[in-house]
């Protein structure tokens, strides 16, 4: 997806990526990136939380308007759960 973003930018089309795999997107190098620190799957916001989804989409709009140079990342100001339980970080692609 980041490669398609780059291709569009190279051809004059402004883009913003909204995603949850920060290292993959930033290593590839895109113009504008809204990073949502959630388990992979719901980068626009928690399922069922329409207000959060609108807020994260709005961050994307804002970045389209305001980013001054490439590789601008902003982070959505949300955590996955209210207890700040981050066991999801470990449980993805876990083995043994």
């Amino acid at each position: 997806m980041s490669l398609v973003s780059r291709y569009l930018e190279e051809n004059g089309v402004p883009t913003v990526v909204i995603g949850s795999a920060r290292d993959i997107v930033e290593q590839c190098g895109v113009s504008r990136f809204v990073f949502t620190d959630f388990p992979l799957g719901n980068p626009v916001g928690k399922p069922g939380d329409s207000d959060m989804q609108k807020a994260i989409l709005e961050m994307g709009f804002n970045l389209l308007e305001s980013a001054a140079f490439a590789r601008t990342t902003v982070q959505a100001p949300f955590v996955w759960n209210a207890e700040d339980d981050v066991s999801w970080r470990k449980s993805f692609m876990e083995f043994e």
Binding site: P39, G41, N42, P43, V44, G45, P47, G48, W80, F92
Partner: peptide, 16 residues
């Protein structure tokens, strides 16, 4: 996606 932690039943969470 993280299949033990979340679900994809809400389109708005990944394609708004």
């Amino acid at each position: 996606w993280h299949k033990t932690e979340t679900h994809m039943d809400d389109l708005g969470s990944f394609l708004p």
